[in-house]
């Protein structure tokens, strides 16, 4: 089944941005991340493909300033999925290539014309440590 046009256009837009971007459906299933995000996450999207929320929320091993794992429910994208509102956080991840990165992440809901919740997008910004 084809995705809603807002999701299709978001993926197209992501392909033309230098800002790392991660796109999920309303259930949190990863639909796409763009090339700049591939550099942060350490693997090409073609290699990882789509994956469910339980998988992507742990596979990049997010940790806080103290090095403690961040529960999936506290990640910005999960908050956005749960509450349908924007969320923001700073944390560290270890990409699939083993590189540790300090990130700011802002997640925003994708709401359709009639307010229907269609998914969410997370924008990443790497901080210099």
């Amino acid at each position: 089944m084809a995705h809603p046009i807002q999701i299709i256009l978001m993926r197209q837009l992501a392909g033309y941005l230098s800002v790392p971007l991660f796109l999920v459906d309303p259930k949190g299933n990863l639909l796409f991340y763009n090339e700049p995000a591939e550099a942060l996450l350490g693997r090409r999207f073609d290699e990882t493909g789509a994956m469910p929320a339980e998988e992507w929320s742990t596979v990049f091993t997010p940790v806080d300033d103290e090095g403690r794992p961040i529960p999936a429910a506290r990640l910005p994208l999960m908050i956005t999925l749960d509450r349908h509102r924007p969320a923001y956080q700073r944390f560290f991840i270890r990409g699939l290539n083993g590189v540790r990165r300090h990130l700011e992440v802002a997640a925003i809901p994708i709401a359709g014309i009639q307010g229907d919740f269609l998914g969410a997008v997370a924008l990443f910004w790497e901080l210099s440590e």
């Binding site: 089944m1 084809a2 995705h3 046009i5 299709i8 256009l9 993926r11 197209q12 392909g15």
Partner: peptide
């Protein structure tokens, strides 16, 4: 055609109006 990726048609779920 705005849905094309590198000039190629993507999978059906990424094509506007496919269904």
């Amino acid at each position: 055609a705005l849905c094309l990726h590198n000039g190629r048609w993507p999978g059906r779920e990424w094509i506007s109006g496919f269904d």
